[in-house]
């Protein structure tokens, strides 16, 4: 056996997450268990598609130099995906809840989020479920350091990791990118309604981070998607 007994880490809405040793490495197993409320054919189809999306996008991110957990194994039969376990981490959601937006590193983190999203979109990857729970901060090892500095967070030595690519796809259209930004804006409004400038900083970094490329079309479409939402008459 090169796989230790998995320990349940958490149960999310669509998957159970375990940790174990796999081939000597600390590993996360994400099991997309059966949802009994939906038709079995639909369930199998959705799970297959999401595992496929996740694996494909992680690989695409690697080529694009975007940090995600490394992919170890995909097991369609058992509905499982094996990934690198990042033991020391804090979600951006928890970071904001604990430290607020007045702290010195907040703006840098928000900018990094914008730049990372732009990189995703420039590589035609759409995340599909952008929330601050799906963004992790992990310690960034400083030059020459072997150990994680316990004060990594306070010093702002952080790296941004994108997770949960189950709703993603890799041949995204302008519309998809616009919707991706809209989903993020909505998630921020509902989760961090007291920090109104967060999305503005992210969006600005998104626009300026790649001076060679052109984000105008995506931003224009994003504004159209947003207008559709706000202008909906909501009859009945």
């Amino acid at each position: 056996m090169d796989e230790s007994e998995p320990q349940l880490l958490k149960q999310g809405a669509e998957a159970r997450v375990y940790i174990c040793k796999y081939l000597g490495r600390d590993t996360v197993i994400k099991e997309r268990f059966q949802k009994k409320y939906r038709h079995p054919d639909l369930d199998v189809e959705i799970v297959k598609e999401r595992i496929r999306n996740e694996a494909r996008s992680i690989l695409r991110c690697k080529f694009a130099n975007i940090r995600t957990p490394a992919l170890y194994l995909v097991d369609f039969e058992r509905r499982k995906i094996y990934m690198e376990y990042l033991a020391t981490n804090i979600t951006v959601k928890d970071f904001i809840a604990k430290h607020g937006t007045a702290n010195e590193h907040f703006e840098k983190i928000a900018k990094t989020i914008g730049e990372t999203l732009r990189k995703l979109h420039d590589n035609n990857i759409v995340h599909g479920d952008l929330t601050t729970s799906n963004m992790l901060l992990i310690p960034k090892l400083q030059a020459g350091a072997e150990q994680i500095d316990p004060a990594w967070l306070a010093k702002g030595h952080v790296e941004l990791v994108m997770i949960d690519f189950g709703l993603s796809y890799t041949d995204a259209s302008i519309e998809d990118k616009g919707v991706d930004l809209y989903v993020l804006e909505r998630a921020l409004l509902s989760t961090h309604s007291n920090y109104e400038d967060l999305f503005a900083i992210i969006l600005k970094a998104y626009v300026v981070s790649n001076p060679k490329g052109n984000a105008n079309e995506t931003i224009k479409r994003f504004e159209e998607v947003r207008a559709r939402g706000r202008k909906r008459t909501m009859v009945g």
């Binding site: 809209y182 509902s190 309604s193």
Partner: peptide
């Protein structure tokens, strides 16, 4: 969920906040 609306709502600090909704037509 109705003919004109599809929203997921939760209460938070004096507002019924919309967490999710349809991006085009309502389910009804």
């Amino acid at each position: 969920v109705s003919g004109g609306n599809t929203q997921i709502i939760a209460y938070d600090r004096r507002r019924y906040r919309i967490f999710g909704e349809t991006i085009d037509i309502a389910v009804g």
